[in-house]
């Protein structure tokens, strides 16, 4: 059963793994990291739970942030709603603002995981669309005990 429609992983239920996060995007002070969860969702050993965190270290606010993801047809991806769509400007005397978003990756055929993202946001008045690809996922055999 490839569909992820019925799978929902609450952020609080996620145990972070010891695997290093992967930097998916890092430009002009806007950084997006993929952190990998230790375990798969109950009953879905084929699904990798990823916590996407978006950080702003730029002196400008970043608004209207939307992340989209695409995966090879043999896989499925689902993005749960993000914790926000705006990041306030960086202030050295406060912790950086962050957005977290849970992303689920189903890979039943255990192929090498690849993901393409499309990121749209407004930095100051400047509207941007960025695309990129991420392929440094943990080896699929380790999904579920990271």
């Amino acid at each position: 059963e490839l569909s992820l429609a019925s799978v929902h992983v609450p952020l609080e239920s996620i145990k972070p793994s010891s695997a290093l996060p992967v930097t998916a995007y890092d430009k002009n002070g806007f950084r997006i990291l993929f952190h990998f969860a230790k375990e798969c969702p109950p009953g879905r050993p084929d699904v990798l739970v990823v916590v996407v965190s978006m950080l702003n270290t730029a002196p400008l606010p970043i608004k209207s942030i939307v992340l989209q993801a695409a995966v090879p047809k043999s896989m499925k991806v689902k993005l749960q709603p993000p914790s926000g769509t705006e990041l306030s400007p960086f202030s050295p005397i406060q912790p950086p603002a962050a957005i977290t978003q849970v992303m689920l990756l189903a890979n039943p055929l255990k192929e090498k995981a690849r993901l393409r993202y499309r990121l749209t946001f407004a930095l100051g008045e400047q509207l941007s669309t960025e695309v990129g690809e991420v392929d440094q996922f943990p080896p699929v055999e380790q999904w579920g005990n990271l």
Binding site: H8, V66, L67, Q68, A69, A70, V71, P72, K73, S74, M75, K76, V77, K78, L79, Q80, P81, P82, Q101, R116, R118, E133
Partner: peptide, 18 residues
């Protein structure tokens, strides 16, 4: 970038059915 084996872009549903 080979486009053939990738599926379409997915985005978060704004109102999560929950």
């Amino acid at each position: 970038m080979d486009d053939d084996d990738f599926g379409g872009f997915e985005a978060a549903e704004i109102f999560d059915g929950g």
